[in-house]
Design a protein around this nucleic acid. Structure first.
Length: 145
DNA sequence: GCCAACGTTGGC
DNA sequence: GCCAACGTTGGC
């Protein structure tokens, strides 16, 4: 399964609020970029994404899961863009952008290469490295499933 | 269809 | 608060 990373400014939507939304989750609206849209459309139910706080915090702070595939974004007047529904899975000990940039195995991460893209793919290797940096071993992660 | 002007994002 | 990078808009 593919892995992703979604970004949000905590001032507008924080991981804490995502957690408060509970198992029912919430829609991830507001994407107005065609590249990000392509990734949203590629997301499958059950796939997981890192939740990244931009501007304030600048760190991966949790994991969310796709619970509803791509559908129209009712807040988009142009009708061109859509969204998915996400629910919080669990929080992570924050992995800061600073540490990500200093990790050679993450040098090709989209977060490093194209910091403005708000929805990004994450490779399996990058996913594991970030989890490792959060202090979780792969075996722990797999034991949880 | 090109490209200058403008707006937005997000790191610093 | 600044500004680089990137997207979008609109005149031609």
């Amino acid at each position: 399964m593919a892995h992703w990373l979604v970004k949000s400014e905590p001032a507008s939507w924080s991981f804490a609020r995502q957690v408060e939304a509970g198992a029912a989750g919430t829609f991830w609206n507001g994407v107005r970029n065609h590249v990000a849209k392509q990734y949203l459309m590629a997301m499958q139910v059950g796939e997981q994404a890192f939740f990244y706080h931009s501007n304030e915090g600048k760190a991966v702070v949790g994991i969310v899961e796709v619970i509803k595939p791509y559908y129209p974004d009712h807040t988009d007047e142009s009708g061109k863009f859509g969204m998915v529904d996400l629910r919080a899975v669990r929080d992570l000990p924050p992995v800061s952008l600073d540490r990500i940039k200093r990790e050679p195995r993450l040098a090709e991460m989209v977060l490093v290469k194209n910091s403005r893209l708000s929805v990004q793919p994450v490779t399996d290797v990058e996913w594991d490295v970030v989890l490792e940096m959060a202090g979780e071993s792969r075996s722990e992660e797999q034991a949880e499933r």
